[in-house]
Simulated assay, not measured.
Amino acid sequence: MFVSLQFRLELKKEDKEKLIRLMRKQSSPIRVAYRRLLISLVFPILGKVLSILVEEVWDRVRSRLASLEVGGASR
């Protein structure tokens, strides 16, 4: 669920500076938390999908490979 607010504040200069500093301090931890959540949820799923794709591609490549024959015997 997302909540969006929009408003206009009329502040004194010193209060405005305090608010800006506070917002800057809060934005960094939120970005870090979002990245950690993304990594913990997306990368395991992406890893499984990639391993399945690589496995399928390797099966196709392996099926096309010709067996090598040396001296009449295949290795």
Rank of each mutant, 00 (worst) to 15 (best):
M1G: 12
M1Y: 05
F2S: 09
V3M: 11
S4T: 11
S4D: 10
S4C: 03
S4V: 12
Q6H: 08
Q6E: 10
R8V: 08
L9R: 02
E10H: 13
L11C: 04
L11E: 06
L11R: 02
K12L: 09
K12G: 06
K13C: 01
D15I: 00
K16E: 12
E17F: 02
E17S: 08
K18F: 05
K18Y: 02
L19G: 01
L19F: 15
I20C: 01
L22G: 07
M23Q: 14
M23Y: 14
M23C: 13
R24P: 00
K25D: 11
Q26G: 08
Q26S: 05
Q26F: 05
S28E: 15
R31G: 11
V32R: 14
V32D: 14
V32K: 15
A33I: 04
R36L: 13
R36Y: 08
L37N: 14
L38D: 11
I39T: 06
I39S: 06
I39N: 09
S40W: 04
L41W: 04
L41N: 09
L41T: 10
V42K: 05
F43N: 10
F43H: 06
L46V: 07
L46G: 06
L46C: 05
L46S: 15
G47N: 13
K48L: 09
K48V: 09
K48Y: 10
V49E: 08
V49M: 12
L50F: 12
L50W: 04
S51K: 13
V54R: 04
E55M: 11
E55N: 10
E55S: 11
E56C: 05
V57R: 13
D59Y: 12
D59E: 15
R60P: 00
R62V: 05
R62I: 03
S63E: 13
L65K: 12
A66G: 03
S67T: 14
L68E: 13
V70P: 01
G71I: 00
G71S: 07
G71Y: 04
G71C: 02
G71V: 01
G72W: 03
A73P: 00
S74C: 04
S74G: 03
S74F: 06
R75H: 07
